[in-house]
Amino acid sequence: GLLESPTSAGVEIEHLTQNVLKSYRETCQLRAEDLQLRRWDTFSREEVCAYQRKPMEEMWQRCAGRITEAIQYVVEFAKRLRGFMDLCQNDQIVLLKAGAMEVVLVRMCRAFNADNRTVFFEGKYAGAELFRSLGCHELISSIFDFAQSLCALHFSESEVALFSALVLVNANRPWLQDQAKVARLQGHLDVAFRVLLRRTRREGLLARLPPPGRLRALCSQHVEQLQAFRRLHPGVLHAAFPPLYRELFA
């Protein structure tokens, strides 16, 4: 009944929604209009070959750099979310450590062209084959499949904003100190998301959202591949990867 009557709870939820949307707009890294305008600007055959010829370590380093940039925007998003900075520092770190990459993967659907299975990467749209020298075909395929499945939901920007806030503020993450406080914030975000969906007659979306396990599995796959890379190229991770990336995944 939150939407039907202008109760103070309803007003609070509306303020929270506006805060999430503003936080998201300010930290979305790439504007949806720009991504849309450039969605057919793909790498040429020669450019793809040049990427494929790069040594594995250089390609890993580049991808780690792009992931780290994206994560920095997610950290800024979290900091602007009302209630997030009121959590204790342990819980802020727990939520970001577990959820930042998941949010990056959700945000990636905006930068994915499902019509030709390409993703915006270093200035142009790239197909999965561009990432060949990483040596993790399965992970790349899984990420592309995930982006494709999210694109099929035709998320609006508001829906991406609220869904990613919910991916981040998850009271089920292990090692939280004040789980009840996180659960309260998660509950408010959940109501805000449902109110938005009801208002836009998109309630059907709820049943089609990816299960949390799917995001978790993708993140585990990423960490496993990083460990495999580390065994192949000991020392490179420490010498050349962004410190924030190492802190989160190594």
Partner: peptide, 17 residues
């Protein structure tokens, strides 16, 4: 946890950038 995540901790402590 803060000890193991100094960069994240620092990013969280900095004002909005």
């Amino acid at each position: 946890l803060q000890e193991k995540h100094r960069i994240l901790h620092k990013l969280l402590q900095n004002g909005n950038s």
